[in-house]
């Protein structure tokens, strides 16, 4: 009896892993294709797409595409710019939006309902449709720099950051999550005389690990993949981010190997960020535990 159920258990486990692995293959194969292609010369890369060789490091393998990509464009600079802009925006966004969501969920105040509705409605506005008016606004904003007061936010990091700190989606993520938190905790803290900022900092945010991770990765992706806006407001190469940099590789005859190498390189920071978040995310769940 015991032997049979152990066998059964082993078989079921094997099936489970088989399913998990099959699904994993479906999700990963284009990325394997990208990585492998980045190692191949153009001619071979294109021929290999017709067979399983597309996923294997076979043939004339080298890092030549990577060095060629560095010759063609300042890859490190682009990645650096994107990481700076994205990193700062994510941190500020989490702070500003979680505070707002806290106010919407836990505090009663005049204008709360109206404001939340308006902010949620902004979710619907695709960025592309407000880009031109936004450009006109950004080009009139004052800025204080080393050379004193001037107008126009073009060619800077802040023009790529500030407009994106607060957005409806991030607020919405926090609001939905906060609604699930036990309100007794907040009430108890109020009774004990804690101020709102104290409750935000000491009680709510320590419980917000999962939503922080979700909001952070979503914001990270949105910012890292910015194309239209930096194209409009950045004319100096020094501030250019990765997605605009991608266009350097689309010349008359596209060097697909270099494209794949560049794509592989710009994907690494995002993957690293996610893996880091996933660890932090699991740690935060393990540490808070008490929920619901």
């Amino acid at each position: 009896m015991a032997a049979i159920s152990a066998d059964n258990h082993g078989l079921r486990l094997a099936v489970r892993y088989a399913v998990l692995i099959l699904i994993a293959i479906i999700f990963v194969f284009p990325l394997v294709f990208m990585l492998m292609s980045s190692l191949k010369p153009d001619q071979q890369l294109l021929q290999d797409t017709a067979s399983l060789r597309a996923f294997l490091p076979v043939g004339d393998i080298s890092l030549a595409n990577y060095s060629a990509a560095f010759d063609r464009a300042p890859v490190t600079l682009f990645i650096f710019n994107s990481v700076v802009v994205t990193g700062i925006t994510v941190v500020l966004s989490l702070l500003v939006c979680s505070m707002a969501a806290f106010a919407f969920v836990f505090i009663g105040w005049r204008g709360r309902e109206f404001l939340l509705t308006v902010i949620l409605a902004t979710l619907i506005v695709p960025f592309e449709t407000i880009a031109i008016p936004l450009l006109l606004i950004a080009s009139k904003l004052p800025s204080i720099g080393l050379d004193g007061l001037s107008t126009g936010w073009l060619n800077s990091y802040h023009v790529q950051i500030v407009p994106f700190i607060a957005d409806g989606l991030t607020v919405f993520l926090f609001v939905q999550y906060f609604k699930d938190l036990p309100s007794e905790l907040i009430e108890a803290a109020r009774v004990e005389g804690a101020s709102w900022p104290q409750i935000y900092r000491r009680i709510v945010m320590p419980l917000a690990g999962p939503v922080l991770a979700t909001a952070a990765i979503l914001k990270f992706l949105a910012m890292y993949n910015q194309y239209l806006w930096p194209l409009m407001v950045v004319q100096e190469e020094g501030y250019r981010p990765v997605m605009v940099g991608l266009q350097y590789f689309f010349q008359q005859n596209v060097a697909w190997g270099e494209v794949m190498a560049y794509l592989s390189m710009i994907t690494v920071p995002v993957l690293a960020f996610y893996l880091y978040l996933q660890r932090a995310f699991i740690a935060s769940i393990a540490s808070t535990g008490v929920k619901g």
Binding site: I132, L135, S139, G152, L231, Q235, F250
Partner: peptide, 18 residues
């Protein structure tokens, strides 16, 4: 500028007075 982004960049630059 990369060619694919050039015309849009000029138009944006012109709109922004730059």
């Amino acid at each position: 500028f990369p060619q694919a982004a050039y015309n849009d960049s000029v138009v944006a630059g012109a709109l922004a007075g730059n």
